Amino acid sequence: MSQQNSKLHYYSDGDILFIVESTIFRIHKNIIGLASKMFYDMFTCAVPNSPSDEENIPEIVLEGEQSKTFEDLLSYIYPNTYIVIDWNNVGEFLRFSEKYIIDSVLTSAKMFLEREFRRNPLYSLLLADIYNFRSLYKESSKLVLDKFPEYKRKGTFSRLSSYTRDSLTNKYNSYTNSLTKLANIEFTSGYLHCDECNKPTDHDLRINQEFIERSRQVQVLPLPLPPTPPSITRRILFNSLGYRTCDNQFMTFQLPRKFKKHFGVFEPLECKKHKKDPDFYPYIELSE
């Protein structure tokens, strides 16, 4: 296969050649070496392809790599070219930068995912799974679990590790099992009425009746209709109970405590960073 010079990264004053597929990149040791210690170490073993080469430029052949990936990487590193990290290249940027220890690119790709994971939660979870991004893993898992039946049907789901697939499945099954047991919850037990309350039995009855009505909204039966998403379940149950007479304390303490005991821990996205976010989600975390 005939070789051709790169249209973007073939510099007349370059002092190292990289051969990727059929493309020749003539670049600068000081720029690529600062970006990657692995490339810097490669320079010591690089020799010219032909001793008769007048310029005597050493070359390195990158086997098994795509020229487009290397070109994009150089465009990100070099100050005279510009390329953004997006959903089309973030996976390759992560793979290449981890393989060749290009920390600046790895960090930038991770920051892109942490900023944009809401747009593609399942793919973000996959990359967090592969590259051990703990915070991203937890946050993207919240959105995947909230629409788990939908995401489970996608091809990307099968690329997740067996640990992550099992953890997601077990967590979601736990949620659906908790939905079926809502009728067995007595949310008014242990509730202390305020001193002004002269009809505690009536209040308990009203609260339980309203809770039953709201429970029916989130128990989508019969199957195979998909269950109500966890975030909506929590919102419906929390927003449905409480009265301004003596039940403010119930809304503040009793219901959250019992919801947690029944469904497990739910969090908003990025936990305390989004205090105004009305939605709370179940999640999974990376194993130690």
Rank of each mutant, 00 (worst) to 15 (best):
Q3K: 13
K7C: 09
L8I: 10
T23R: 04
I31H: 04
I31M: 13
I32N: 02
G33E: 02
A35R: 01
M38S: 13
D41A: 15
E54V: 15
E54P: 13
P58F: 10
I60F: 08
S67E: 02
D72S: 14
L73P: 03
Y76T: 05
P79L: 11
W87R: 15
V90A: 12
L94W: 02
I101Y: 10
K110I: 02
F117N: 01
F117I: 05
R119G: 09
L126A: 08
I130D: 00
K147R: 13
F148T: 02
P149K: 12
Y151W: 09
R153L: 14
T156K: 12
F157D: 03
D166P: 05
S167E: 02
T169H: 10
N170V: 14
K171G: 08
K171R: 15
S178F: 08
T188F: 07
S189W: 06
S189V: 14
Y191P: 04
H203W: 03
L205Y: 11
I207A: 07
I212R: 15
S215K: 08
Q219F: 09
T233D: 00
T233I: 07
R235K: 14
R235G: 05
F238A: 09
S240K: 06
G242S: 05
C246L: 07
T252D: 01
F253C: 10
L255F: 12
P282V: 04
Y283D: 00
